[in-house]
Structures are given as C-alpha cells and as structure tokens.
Simulated scan of single mutants.
Amino acid sequence: MTKTKYLLYDFKVLLDGKYTYWYKTDNKYFSSTKPPQHILSKNNSQKESLDGIETFENPWIEWKSNDIQKISSKDGVCINYLKSLDNDYIVIQEDLKLLEIYTYLVENLDISKAFGFETIKQWHKMIFSSIYPFAGELRTVNMSKGSGSEAWEWRLDFLRGLPEFDNFLKEISIKEYGEDIDSISSDLSKLISDFLFIHPFREGNGRLSRLICDIILAKNGFPMIGLKLKRGDNYIQRVHEGYECNYKPMNELLKSKIKEELMIE
C-alpha cells in the first residue's frame, strides 16, 4: 500500500468481511454520497499522522490517471461505485444487475428488429452504470487475465474488429433459424468467440456475450442457455479455440446445451 498526503478517502471500514472506502475526493470520479449512519458508527478507519497531516492507505494504483479505466487495486479490482475491493461482493452485484436486465429485455425488446453493437453498448450501460463509472464506454486499456493455458492479453488494436462484428451481429439478430439448432449454434459460437476476442469493454464482456447469445436464441424460440455456460464445460478453453477461428468446440457446447434444455438426445 502506498501512502499519500492527499485525502484520497475519509476512511475505510471492514463490515461483514468487506472493505468499503469512502472518498474525500468523490467529486473527481463519483457523485458525492454520504456514508450511511450504520457504517459511520462502525468506522474503524486506519489513520496516521505525518507532519501533522492525516494520511490514509491508498488501495488504488494509477489513482492520479486521467483515464479512470487505469485505476484498479493491486489485485486487479477496478475502481467502482460500490467503493469495494471485495471481488466476490462486486461479482454478486454484477449478477443481480444482469438478471434485472434479462427481465427488462424479455419484457420490452422488440424481437422483430435487428440490433447491432450500439445496442450492446446501451445494455452494458444499463447493467453496470451503478457499479462502474465507465459503463457503456469502449475499453481504453490493454488487458490481461488468467494464467497458464487460460492466460490471454487483449490489445487495444483488437477493437478494430468492431465494424465487422457489428455487421455480423445485425445479420444474425434478424435471421430466422426455424428449428435449425446446427445453424444457430454455429453462428452463435462465432459471435461469442469474436466478441470476447475483441473484448470491447473494461469489464463485463463475458456476461454481455452470453446475454447477446440468449436474446438471439429467445428471438428464435429457443431456450436461453447463457447462464448455464460454466467453467466445468471447459468454457474458457473453447473460447480460446474460437480466438484462433476454431469455432467447433464452442459450437459443440452450445448445441449440447440447447438440446439439453429441449430434452433432445
């Protein structure tokens, strides 16, 4: 942890196993929010004095950057409106917002119309606007995640693939598949793999790829399977095969999940 003379936040508090940071400088990146009284009353902030100036541990790397997407903890947690470094807690909040948007789209989306990447940006903002200050914005940083066989780096130049992806998305979002499981699973395997290769957003790409998949399935009368795609299905390995334009492994997974939901052997 680095120390600074600047009051980056008023205090941190450990509550129910989660660290929450309340910022003095909220107006730099966030709308100012007063901590609720029940947290204030349990404040166990770690304050020190240096030459008469109160200092605080700064959990954020690149705090002074003008690009908020660069600001994260040493463990890779992006700065967030939840003011938390607890990744498990953040993931739960992301999942809850995702389910809200599933419900909203099922009830309100006009399935007769095609949609493209601009619509996906709107969905991203709807899901993450209460969690990340960069919701709905394109990625501005190179990213890397995982280790070993699951390691991957997404460079900024991958974003050049967005126009081609946009055209493909518009094409299949209006396509009528009837009962052709082979055809829709083939198209969706390419869609998911290409979207995740481009990695257009700082956070939430996996969730968005599966949401897009589910919406296209639902438009064609197929069951949604996005929430059923798990690591136990060798999902990450199949995605990486798709990065090399080998869509067969992902195609096989999608097809099996659709048939499983339809109870087809």
Rank of each mutant, 00 (worst) to 15 (best):
M1N: 14
T2G: 14
T2D: 15
T2R: 12
T4Q: 02
L7Q: 08
L14N: 11
D16R: 11
G17F: 13
G17Q: 08
G17D: 07
Y29E: 02
P35N: 07
P36C: 00
H38E: 12
K42D: 06
N43C: 07
E48W: 15
S49P: 02
G52T: 04
W60T: 02
N66W: 06
N66Q: 12
I68H: 06
G76S: 06
G76K: 08
V77N: 11
C78G: 12
C78L: 13
C78M: 14
N80W: 02
L82C: 09
L85C: 10
D86W: 10
I92D: 02
E94N: 08
K97A: 12
L105W: 06
N108Y: 01
D110T: 03
I111G: 07
I111Q: 11
G116T: 00
H124V: 03
K125P: 01
K125Q: 12
I127L: 11
I131T: 08
I131C: 09
I131Q: 12
Y132S: 07
P133Y: 05
P133F: 08
A151M: 05
W152A: 06
W152G: 00
R155A: 15
I174R: 10
G178E: 00
D180P: 00
I184Y: 05
L188T: 01
L191H: 01
L191D: 05
S193L: 09
L196W: 05
I198Y: 00
H199G: 07
F201I: 08
E203H: 09
L211W: 01
D214S: 12
A218Q: 13
G232V: 04
N246E: 10
Y247V: 01
L253C: 05
K255L: 10
L262W: 03
